[in-house]
Design a binder for these strands. Sequence first.
RNA 1: GCUGGCGUAGCUCAGUCGGUAGAGCAGCUGUCUUGUAAACAGCAGGUCGUCGGUUCGAUUCCGACCGCCAGCUCCA
Length: 642
Amino acid sequence: MPQIELPDGHRVVLPEGEPIGSVLPPTTIVARFDGELVDLSFVPGRDGKGEPVTADEPDGLHVLRHSTAHVMAQAVCDLVPGAKYAIGPPIEDGFYYDFELPQPLTPDDLPRIEARMAEIGAADQPFVREELSRQQALERFADQPYKREIIEGLDEAEGAGADTVVVYRSGEWSDLCRGPHVPSTGRLGAFKLLKLAGAYWRGDESRPMLQRIYGTAWPTEPDLKAYLHRVEEAERRDHRKLGRQLDLFSFPEELGPGLAVWHQRGGIFRKQLEDYVRDLHLERGYDLVVTPHLARRVLWDTSGHTAKFIENMYPVMDDGQGSQYFVKPMNCPFHVLVYKSQVRSYRDLPMRLSELGTVYRYERAGVLHGLLRVRGMTQDDSHIICREDQLIDEILSVFDLTLDIHRTFGFEDPVVTLSTKPGQAIGEESMWARAIEALTKALNNSGLEYTVAEGEGAFYGPKVDFHFRDAIGRLWQLTTVQVDFALPERFDMEFVGEDNERHRPVMIHRAILGSLERFAGVLIEHYAGAFPLWLAPEQVRLVPVADRHVEHARELAEKLRAAGLRPFVDPSGETVGKKVRAAQLMKVPYTLVIGDREAETANLTVRDRSGTEAKDVALEAFVRALMEEAGTRSLEQSRFGD
RNA sequence: GCUGGCGUAGCUCAGUCGGUAGAGCAGCUGUCUUGUAAACAGCAGGUCGUCGGUUCGAUUCCGACCGCCAGCUCCA
């Protein structure tokens, strides 16, 4: 009879044939046996450590969601005769399941499916684990082509001993699954079906499009409520909505998809961002260059863009005189030409050419998303041209600059990935190997943790990407650092070395904010539109109490402007309450209410964004505090009064 | 690009089972002259995304296109 050691150190004897669940607490939904997740119905054949797992820990939640996905698929199959089910894994915050259905579902069908799921839950059907031979499994899923495809693929994937296929059955319905599952359909938590979407079978766009149902599942009803609340919070921060509310930018249909116009307020915000990064680059030893938006075809043929990137480029333009032009999707070839405008010495290196370069990429229609994915964008793009022995130091200094810049906005702890050679690539294998080696060494020297993304590199070289977490925990890919031996070769870039011989330099492509559009979109969501003072388009709103105070407000605004701030007077005849509300809705950092009292004392009454009011603030003190706050790019508002 | 959904005033939305449309906010005007998140009244504002088709008649039904949204695939 096996002995089970429980987490508290107790050893219990499990009678022969008894499941592990019989010695675990009733709230347990799955178990760990010697570290491995197993069903509660698992019968240990030997001594070992047994641990209860509840839905409150990550593994348990994972299983809960997986089981919920199964029950959803069971419900769909009950309701839709002829449904073919594909796969249904747990994902962050929930689960999905993919189906091929005779008739597509509509959002109205989701409540019906939820109701059926509830019935299955009430029936409390046990999840029964069955081990079938491959042949038995193929028969069981005779009318399920996707399951059969998976079973047929199992042998190759799992190697020897894969003649056994694990199937879980609940009621009459069964699914191919490695498990484990909760003990029965009555042990699901709180769930909700969220949306319908299309998804390619096995993520391959050459294969059939299936219908996917997304759902979310949590241990308890309050957990579900909290999650739905978090989703609402994210919607409240949507930069597309805030962009309109705050009058920052728009996407006029006449311009074409993915092409933004920045309004007056957005223009100031952009200028603040641009000045900050440009000045910082100059401080850090970068040079500025400026290049046009178009170039002849030959440039793109040389760089390899027409061969490897044409899908992402706007169609060619013909000037009618026999020349063809492309609008630029990248800045690199132009910077190469700046380099090549003279014979370069080893003394010139590293050369760091920097530009806020506006590029146009013909992104596929379905991927566009507000400012986060556009077709016209400005990159904070630099190309560092250096000797190979300078490469690692240069990469490290880029990492350093990256962390420095992002800290300014309150982004810390990046998630870093190293992306290797993709399918569509130029350059020899040895170049790729050296480039990857340099990036790897730099990463190791930097102490940054990273993961490897196979085949995700740019067509001309491998890259390191930095993803940063925003205020509500979402990750955004911003920075990219790419090492390129290929373009120097293609453009025959050279420098004269100490030995008076000609040598080939290496090039680093890097964008730290990424694109100003995406970065702006991320910042809007990160700050929920309430920008720190230095970025706020309008910094101070002056609200005259009555018409007779407008002139005094204007004089004060003039003083603030002269001091370098961005004030705005609201001269409308509305009530004070309404004008204050208007300022608050525009998320203006400071509102000054100007009435008789202020006219007499020459002091200010200051309201900050939190609604805190301070009376009798001296103008000089107010200006000093705001200049300090903006000058240090503080993320906190100044306090006045108490 | 693919799958599904959507497109009515500057914004947020109602509505028309086919007879050319309404509200709130914003805007403008007037009254009020206001003390920290919405004063009151009036006015103005829409070829109901575009183009075809069906119909005596289309914003409504059908089709194509354009755009947007969610997801897939792809990416700064």
